[in-house]
Design a protein around this nucleic acid. Structure first.
Length: 427
RNA sequence: GGAGAGGUGGCUGAGUGGUUGAAAGCACCGCACUCGAAAUGCGGCAUACGGGCAACCGUAUCGGGGGUUCGAAUCCCUCCCUCUCCGCCA
């Protein structure tokens, strides 16, 4: 959510941000709405001030038993109050009009974000490892289905399309990946493990900006809850409506949770395999920082996510998303794309974003400055550290052997009960 | 799900219709005293919004929303949350 005062201070910069995201300029319209709002507030407050003064006088008159004067004053207040409902209504409507407009606008991109229209304008930032071009490379679902351990038909019977049933060693591999990542981030990267609710309220979804604009991408659970599309939602909202102290920042949280996405806009996309599912596991990273710390924390978070892929020795590249491809709440995003030999392509496996104070404002999450006075909004960051389902795919495709088995990356062997390969002969 | 008790400032905790943004204590900050510290004394100490160059003025906020009233922390309705007991339950 944007601060109308900052828009007023620099309308041109605000509009440039919108333009970079491919949107029409709006500053003028927003300022007009704000003018109307201010007028309405002032009018209402003037009436309230008058009412309060008269009421006080009534109290004083009654205290000295001057009933005549009290009655006189009460009649005057009664007249004044006739106009109040209209003033209140005008104030409420002016507020809502501005709020509604602001709530639907995406964050302003940082100045250092490449300007572009879509993913084709993203900028590669770094690479790790050599993409393997295996002539007979199989896709992950070919391997998994051949072993009888990845069952889309069974899942369809239970839940429809975009679900999967994993069995045996693949179910264990998913669990192993989750434990491995959680252990890495907690033991070596300083994140605090959190086990959050998976069902959250409207205002929590509003806080991280899934609502109001992206309701159709979410799953509703009952009348008052939503299934989380990512642990970013509960982890970031951990600080909603809080006043933190500067000393305790940055806060770093990690959680391994299922994520639920309606994938409403992805009909017909990535329908084979488990690349794009309605439900998947993800290890999430969230940081809460001061404005001064957030840029550096963003780099740090990216490094933490990269560490996962390095330990697993999976080839990947990092891209900086261009203005047209960034998420709604983000001011700057790095995507990590892992190499999938079966597809012969890099595919997103992590996305690390700094949301500046955009979410903090929606959540009303602030901190008190060290030198005593003053409150400021925190900065929030989130990143996948990393997506478990896609990591599983990447392992199958990158570690496949000619005999149709898959070697277990050494970092995962301890988590696999010592098993060094899966899906081998004799199965 | 049923019955009951509660939700007041950073914390504890007064306050049941009138000038209360809210007593008192603790915590915190400043000053005095002290060689220094403790103790003590004095003072300060919420947030948001509107107006103003500013000093400052105003409005709102005692879990959320709505209502009664000239006036609500105080009365009524409703929702949320916490606690106790009962039921159910992984």
């Amino acid at each position: 959510m944007h601060d109308i005062r900052l828009i007023r201070e620099n309308p041109a910069a605000f509009d440039q941000g919108l333009r970079n995201r491919g949107l029409e300029p709006l500053a003028e319209r927003l300022m007009a709405l704000d003018d109307r709002r201010k007028e309405a507030v002032s009018a209402l407050q003037a009436a309230l001030e008058r009412r309060n003064a008269l009421s006080k006088e009534i109290g004083q008159a009654k205290a000295r038993k001057d009933e005549a004067r009290a009655q006189e004053l009460m009649a005057e207040v009664a007249r004044l109050k006739d106009s109040m409902p209209d003033l209140e209504k005008a104030e409420r409507e002016a507020n809502e009009a501005l709020e509604k407009e602001l709530a639907g606008l995406p964050n302003t991109p940082n100045p250092d974000v490449p300007v572009g229209r879509d993913e084709r304008d993203n900028v590669e930032r770094s690479r790790y490892g050599e993409p393997r071009h295996l002539p007979a490379a199989k896709q992950h679902f070919e391997l998994g289905e051949a072993w009888g351990l990845m069952d889309f038909e069974a899942a369809a019977k239970l839940s429809g399309s975009r679900f999967v049933v994993l069995r045996g060693e693949l179910a264990r591999l998913e669990r192993a990946l989750g434990q491995f990542m959680l252990d890495l981030h907690t033991a070596e990267h300083g994140y605090t493990e959190v086990a959050p609710p998976l069902l959250v309220r409207d205002e929590v979804m509003f806080g991280t900006a899934q609502l109001p604009k992206f309701a159709e991408d979410q799953f509703r659970a009952g009348s008052e809850h939503w299934l989380i599309p990512t642990a970013e939602v509960p982890l970031t909202n951990l600080v909603r409506e809080a006043i933190l102290s500067e000393d305790e920042l940055p806060l770093r949280f990690t959680a391994l949770t299922p994520c639920f996405r309606a994938e409403a806009g992805a009909a017909g996309k990535d329908t084979r395999g488990m690349l794009r599912q309605h439900q998947f596991m993800k290890c999430e990273l969230v940081s809460i920082t001061t404005p001064e710390q957030s840029a550096e924390e963003h780099e740090r978070m990216l490094a933490c996510a990269e560490a996962v892929l390095r330990r697993l020795d999976l080839p990947y590249r990092v891209v900086t998303l261009c203005t047209g491809d960034m998420g709604f709440a983000s001011a700057k995003t790095y995507d990590i794309e892992v190499w999938l030999p079966g597809q012969g392509a890099y595919r997103e496996i992590s996305s690390c974003s700094v949301c500046t104070d955009f979410q903090a404002r929606r959540m009303n999450a602030r901190y008190r400055l060290k030198d005593g006075k003053g409150l400021r909004f925190v900065h929030t960051l989130n990143g996948s550290g990393v997506a478990i389902g896609r990591a599983l795919i990447a392992i199958l495709e990158n570690y496949q052997n000619e005999d149709g088995s898959v070697t277990v990356p050494s970092a995962l062997v301890p988590y696999m009960g010592g098993a060094k390969r899966i899906g081998g002969a004799g199965r």
